[in-house]
Nucleic acid binder design. Structure first.
Length: 492
RNA sequence: CGGGGUGUAGCACAGUCCGGUUAGUGUACCUGGUUUGGGACCAGGGGGUCGCAGGUUCGAAUCCUGCCACCCCGACCA
């Protein structure tokens, strides 16, 4: 018996945890709340990075790197931001250990080595970056500044889950500075579009673009835009955010520039990020009870080839054929894995590569050699068919495209099925308990109502969709007037 | 951070209530052979600070105290 995972219907959250571990994506480390991302999982993250990085560069951004540590005085400069993160910060207070005089071979913190000013381990980098931008910006000619950084951040979470919420996680954070509010808003929306494009075209994950309510907004932002996705258990997941910071950070850090007209003005800012949480979204959006299902565009291995043989001689003949096929596929840019292990039976290998979500599997045995055929199996539908060997080179690219498209369509129709328009609070509560998903409903726009609904149902306003049509209605909770529907859901 | 639960081989667990040979099972691992078109079989073998630290006892995986970690529920989480 190999590795098996629980079914989604039995225990969704156990299914997720086991899948992450059994598919070799990540595991818990010995550090509380922190994970080890294993090579297979990390290679998926690298594919995400590559695609996103290119999109950032194509929209004019450059990468840079800022320090992990933020002096407390800088951190607290933008009050709302500091307050928002204060409860989950790790703080460096000392810079030296020494041997414990009472306990041989052990180390203690040297009380003599207390830092004059504590260093906050960045939960996000606005503070240190805006403090740096102050030095970079004097004139409108210095603007815009379009910088991104790939980094780790630390948020001391009480309850963690692999990829979805860990104390340390990897992400990218873009930080831009502009001469006008319009420019900054345009940037904010552009990056939201980049995220949505990435989610849909690479992750095969349909997302709703929207704006956060005041209560869900990034601390220190004027406006927070987001993409929201629907997971297979009916819970929503925020997959990326893009913030219009107004002049909040420029004012806090005194970042001013001289305009064309010779006036001294505060700079307008944005910040935007996606994290390794996208891995969680990817896993939960597509995978099934047999394991991971990866969209070809993010799969570290596109095609796995399993030989079926009895004798050494058969194995050699098959290997020759496989070499031919795989080098032709590699020439087209596909990652091909030949699983030539003789220590496992084919059935075992089939199950293992399915668990790891490889989009296409080829099986070649003596029968195929005779007939000039190969068995082609696709991971998303688990369909198998026998193909002529000389068709492979053209059939595989088409098949991979089809898989990419199919899992997107499947996720899209699921998401649409899981989005329900609701006009009464009772109906909403019933739906949340029985079906889940997005609830599209009217809201009076106040924080009080939002908080009350959250308190009573555990559902939050995920976003105010950008494409929400103007529609007169009554708030589901207070009956007050509302101009458009918003999306509620229970969320990760 | 509160309530509950669990820590025994890489993994999953039994044994703990009621202390007493050499701590066991499945799986994984190693060797040899037979196998190979959906998770092979037989035989042999290796692997254990029983979470950590104290205590009680002639004797502790087992009883007591403290600590740590993880899981579930809640609070928290922009």
């Amino acid at each position: 018996m190999g590795k098996e995972i629980p079914s989604r219907s039995e225990d969704y959250s156990l299914w997720y945890n086991e899948l992450v571990k059994k598919a070799d994506l990540a595991e818990h480390s010995d550090v509380r709340g922190c994970m080890v991302i294993k090579p297979y999982g990390y290679s998926i993250w690298e594919k995400m990075q590559q695609a996103l990085d290119k999109m950032f560069k194509d929209t004019g951004h450059s990468n840079a790197y800022f320090p992990l540590f933020v002096p407390k005085s800088l951190f607290e400069a933008e009050e709302k931001n500091a307050e928002g993160f204060a409860k989950e910060c790790a703080i460096v207070t000392h810079y030296r250990l020494k041997t414990d005089p009472n306990n041989k071979g052990k180390l203690i913190v040297d009380p003599e080595a207390r830092l004059e000013e504590e260093l906050v381990v960045r939960p996000t980098s606005e503070a240190i970056i805006w403090n740096t931008y102050k030095k970079w910006i004097q004139s409108y000619r210095d603007l815009p500044i379009l910088v991104n950084q790939w980094a780790n951040v630390v948020r001391w979470e009480m309850r963690t889950r692999l990829f979805l919420r860990t104390a340390e996680f990897l992400w990218q954070e873009g930080h831009t500075a502009h001469a006008t509010a319009d420019d900054a808003v345009r940037e904010t929306v552009q990056m939201l579009d980049v995220y949505a494009d990435f989610a849909e075209n690479f992750m095969a994950l349909p997302v709703v673009k929207g704006r956060k309510s005041e209560g869900e907004r990034f601390p220190g932002a004027i406006d927070t835009y987001c993409i929201e996705a629907m997971m297979q258990d009916g819970k929503a997941l925020q997959a990326g955010t893009s913030h219009f910071l107004g002049q909040n950070f420029a004012k806090a850090f005194n970042v001013q520039f001289t305009s064309k007209e010779g006036k001294l003005e505060h700079v307008w800012g944005t910040s935007w990020g996606v994290s390794t949480r996208l891995m969680g979204a990817l896993i939960m959006a597509h995978s099934d009870d047999d394991g991971l299902v990866l969209p070809p565009k993010l799969a570290p291995i596109h095609v796995v080839i399993v030989p079926i043989f009895k004798t050494e001689e058969e194995f050699k003949k098959i290997t020759d054929k496989v070499t031919e096929i795989s080098s032709a596929l590699r020439k087209q840019g596909y990652a091909v894995k030949y699983d030539s292990r003789d220590t496992h039976k084919p059935g075992f290998k089939f199950a293992e590569w399915e668990l790891k979500g490889v989009p296409v599997r080829l099986a070649i045995g003596p029968r195929d050699l005779e007939n000039g055929t190969v068995e082609v199996a696709r991971r998303d539908t688990k369909e198998k068919k026998v193909m002529k060997m000389d068709e492979i080179n053209t059939a595989i690219p088409a098949l991979l495209d089809d898989i990419q498209n199919n899992i997107y369509q499947k996720a899209l129709s699921y998401r649409n099925n899981m989005t329900t328009e609701v006009n009464s609070y009772d109906e909403m509560k019933k739906l949340l308990d029985e079906k889940g998903g997005f609830i599209s409903a009217h809201w009076d726009g106040t924080m009080e109502t939002e908080a009350a609904i959250k308190e009573e149902t555990k559902a939050t306003i995920r976003c105010i969709p950008l494409d929400a049509k103007e529609e007169e209605g009554k708030c589901i909770y207070t009956g007050k007037l509302s101009k458009r529907r918003v999306l509620f859901a229970r969320a990760y």
